[in-house]
Design a protein around this nucleic acid. Sequence first.
DNA 1: TTAGTTGCAAACTCTTTGCACGAGG
DNA 2: CCTCGTGCAAAGAGTTTGCAACTAA
Lengths: 189, 189
Amino acid sequence: MEKHEDIDQLVEQYLEAIKSAGFRMTTQRRVIIETLLKNMGDHPNAQELLERAQKVDPSIGIATVYRTVELLNNMDLLNLTNLQEGFRRYEIADENLHIHFYCRCCGSVSHFSADREKEKTVREWAREAGFRLMPQVLEIQGVCENCQAELGDIPEEEYILRCAPGCGRFGRRVSQPPGRGRRRWFRNS
Amino acid sequence: MEKHEDIDQLVEQYLEAIKSAGFRMTTQRRVIIETLLKNMGDHPNAQELLERAQKVDPSIGIATVYRTVELLNNMDLLNLTNLQEGFRRYEIADENLHIHFYCRCCGSVSHFSADREKEKTVREWAREAGFRLMPQVLEIQGVCENCQAELGDIPEEEYILRCAPGCGRFGRRVSQPPGRGRRRWFRNS
DNA sequence: TTAGTTGCAAACTCTTTGCACGAGG
DNA sequence: CCTCGTGCAAAGAGTTTGCAACTAA
């Protein structure tokens, strides 16, 4: 989280970009951008963004959040994230490439900006395919250190793949693993 | 696309996995898995999966498609893809890591299985963060060769970022770029 | 026999949109 | 002023779920 003056200044920069693209600088856009900047790293979704923005300006509606988020995305000033939760998360795009590690067990997201080397590598892969990279977030899924420790020494072929609560809604409701005692999904060997 | 005998054999393997996990081998699951296997590379969504499966067994309902897809995902036999289209696409997981290149301009997806080297690289990144990778699809977004050619020589700072039709529904409906003649979004410099 | 599965339709959740009003330039 | 932008409420789209009937084991 940055200092307030810095954020205020950044907000104005984003608004300036919006203005110079021919759009209007409105109070709502200012508040939403400010909220986005103050919550970098939190990856809020539309609902959270709304609630936080409403603390500054209670009149803001959800439609405006979606419209602002879309505007920013169109101008490529925003990264969208999708963790298969059934909704999107948003983050101001401040660099060209982000890499997130998403734990399928506990749902935690550790994210750090891609260092030059990683970015270069991915760019090279893209080039091989004739692609030109756009600023974005790369989601890499796995099991985090904590969860690995908690799971203990399990053979690769039976590594636990079940999404535990916290991963979002997908993967937790249909068939439960059969049998009374079992509580986890295992990979077939 | 593989030969029929091979697919039939694969279907049985998947069903066997399901059975050995304690679930039942049903006609519907057989048909859906077969459809998934026959459409590898197409990344069908739930609706498309339903339509194609219904050609074999018209009684199949959309709920069963979703439930089967969730079962397979829970067993980590399926990769989910999210291209910000408003729905998910599915693909049988046959390898540990896939890398897709998604063109933000035309919406095309070129995907090739990660070769050993790429997989190793990503795994190393994960290891640095204490992560253990799970089978998955990595979506890398950019602009494909064709679209780049079409766009011509545009400076990096003004590179076109607008999602053209075909990218899905996000990013195409709210504010249009202002002014009568302009049809594209440009990045602020 | 019996617990897991299915199809249907209703319910849900997130996102988008039509419209009349309001506000930036 | 004249558009563009906003809030509201309704509409849409994809996904999930309750339930009675069905079926694999």
